[in-house]
Design a protein around this nucleic acid. Sequence first.
DNA 1: GCAAAAGTGTTTGGGATACACCCATGC
DNA 2: GCATGGGTGTATCCCAAACACTTTTGC
Lengths: 225, 225
Amino acid sequence: MQYKTPYTPPTVTVDAVMFQLIDNALNVALIQRSTEPFKGEWALPGGYAPQGETTLQALERIVLHKAGVSILNDLSYIEQLYTFDSVARDPRGHAVAVTYMGCGQNIHPDQAKAVVTFFPVNNLPPMAYDHAEIVKYAHNRLIAKLTYTNAVYAFLPQYFTLAELQTAYEAVFGYELDKRNFRKKFLSLGLTEETDQMRREGAHRPARLHRFKSPDLEVLSRSFD
Amino acid sequence: MQYKTPYTPPTVTVDAVMFQLIDNALNVALIQRSTEPFKGEWALPGGYAPQGETTLQALERIVLHKAGVSILNDLSYIEQLYTFDSVARDPRGHAVAVTYMGCGQNIHPDQAKAVVTFFPVNNLPPMAYDHAEIVKYAHNRLIAKLTYTNAVYAFLPQYFTLAELQTAYEAVFGYELDKRNFRKKFLSLGLTEETDQMRREGAHRPARLHRFKSPDLEVLSRSFD
DNA sequence: GCAAAAGTGTTTGGGATACACCCATGC
DNA sequence: GCATGGGTGTATCCCAAACACTTTTGC
């Protein structure tokens, strides 16, 4: 194009915001940095995206290496979040961060590789870089996804109770829903079907298990809440 | 971090999808490429994003230089769209494109700088790179924005008729709306107010002019259509 | 008076909301 | 029998959708 002067691109980095429900609360995976800058602080898992790899490929490789998690296999849903590019966000120099957000229900970081911990989104530690902002942005995006798509499935095992389903929504939205209205509305969407299995646990009536009819992300006919 | 081998970032580029209504149709600005690759083909205005500038700053500079349009001043609304990063999208080598989408109502490209033309989204020419895909993605995002925010304001002058407003929605959505229901619903949102001015043109009843109460982007209390 | 766009109301159906009690089980 | 969470129905209100005629102007 028109730039005769040597063109120097910014560094390109990738970061993953991985959500999972733990004890009925929405949690996000953070890794404790072992090197400067921000040594010892908590950060999103991520790293440098080199030429020749898509950002998602780079992220898969990096997160697998640093945290022992495969974002492609261990997450049930993943999407590109946003590209953060302010010049001062990395003290080492201008770094453009292409970020991704995903959800899973059985993510087990490999603690041998690094200190990786899930923190409740309502009780996050101080974070390196602009990662607190990124997590907040991801949470807002997630709320939106759950309202107009069937993305909740990403938080649930194959068979689940309606109470678990409702709890997933409540954990993401941050407020409680009416049980009768929730069930009526959700069932009317026709995304799930009853199974003939029940879960019995504790001194109370067993709960019927449901499952999603389709494993694919769909836009809802009527948006949720 | 962990990469001892020399790290080579991909090229970072920026591209702008600029929408404007022309003759009641949604149009997008394309520039005819004057150099290889894709010489002579139509493409989104864009270029290289160097270290030390945000992608939006780079885009402002590049689009001003290549098309004579200031995305910051000539667009009423702009947002980051998506980052396209497939390895093969640019034949010269791996280029990660951070794209933006915006809307205006009085965009006048400087034809002295390049051949810049607005094309109706329903009648686009063959396009360079993956730019057809990007325009389609932007159009979908725009439809979503108009359904849950007051972003239509970006297509309209300060004073406008309800017929113009409805036409803007129809041009973006691609289908027609019922006039009575449209007015009832839109007015009930309380975003606009009547003025005491009328527009008279042609052999028919003059139309009352309205204006938006606030120039800011807002999420609607009830989403639109 | 006629062509052309502006403007205006009512009916109906469905979904959202609010709300309280019985059911099945383990101990 | 009691504590615990699972499961269910109804009344009201508001909004979405469907639908056709009158008004104001220029010529």
